[in-house]
Structure formats: C-alpha cells, structure tokens
C-alpha cells in the first residue's frame, strides 16, 4: 500500500474539564421507548382516508403497527385483503373488518378471499399542524 505523508495541522489543541453537571444528567425521555414494545417487529405507516374517524384515526395520521402482537377480537389492525393494505377493526366472531365510520360498510372476510394480518395498530399519531408547516418552522430554527 502506498502511503502519503501529510503536513501537521496548525490549529490549537482544544482542552477542557468535564462539566460537574454531567453526573446529574438523566437521559431524555424517549418516545420510541414509550410507544414501541417490539422495535424489530414494528413499522410506521400513513393512514389514508376517513373510514376510521370514530376511532380517532384521520387522514394522514401516522400509525404505529406491531407485527409481534397477536391480533385479538376488537383490535385495530392493518390487514392485507386480497393484496391491498387496509386498516379496520377486527371482528373475529363475525369474520368482518369493521370501519369506524357510519357512512361505510363492514367488509366481510369471504371464505375465498385471503386475509392476512399485517400487524396490530398500537398507537396512532395525530398531527395538529400541517406537515409542511412543521418542516418549515424546523428549518427556520436550524438556520438561526
């Protein structure tokens, strides 16, 4: 291997004493820890549509979806019904996917259609400011 020799650097050495406050610093609260139980089995998704509004899930909300949790009767799940991802309440007894919106009908899980649970929605996050506005204000803060 060829090695290039380089000039030494000229600027000053930075030295300093560690702050005495270091011992008293607690870790910051971590939302991941608060919201996610199985990190390797959890993914985030974006809700699109209004069929779950009565459960407080609105268009553009962020869903936290856990695949490691066994889906139980009454859970809000992400399911692949004939290949398409949807989010509904699982009615195991009547074999239905229930919307949370009176204007919409339950989706029967037919004997011939394939239903695969793609995880249980353990939390949903409502964004109370527009996403583009949020990003703009963050950018402003970074530049100042």
């Amino acid at each position: 291997m060829k090695v290039i020799k380089l000039p030494k650097f000229a600027h000053a050495v930075q030295a300093g004493f560690p702050s005495a406050a270091d011992d008293f610093i607690e870790a910051q609260l971590d939302l991941n820890e608060h919201l996610i139980e199985h990190p390797s089995a959890t993914y985030l998704a974006r809700a699109q549509g209004s069929s779950m509004k009565d459960q407080g899930i609105f268009n553009n909300d962020t869903l936290i979806v856990d695949r490691a949790r066994e889906a139980e009767h009454g859970d809000i799940v992400v399911a692949a019904l004939d290949g398409e991802l949807t989010c509904k309440i699982l009615d195991k007894q009547r074999r239905l996917l229930l919307p949370a919106n009176n204007a919409m009908r339950p989706v029967p899980i037919g004997d011939n259609s394939e239903l695969i649970i793609e995880g249980v929605v353990i939390h949903s996050i409502r964004h109370h400011i527009r996403q583009d506005r949020k990003q703009r204000s963050k950018t402003n803060r970074q530049t100042t």
């Binding site: 993914y43 985030l44 998704a45 974006r46 809700a47 549509g49 989010c87």
Partner: peptide, 15 residues
Amino acid sequence: AYTTRWQDIPRVMLG
C-alpha cells in the same frame, strides 16, 4: 425506503 424515510413509510388505505 419504507422503514428509514418519513416520506416513504407505507400507505394504508382506510377507504
């Protein structure tokens, strides 16, 4: 990049 970029997270159609 479904799991690493905010703009790319999967979309779930509620209907």
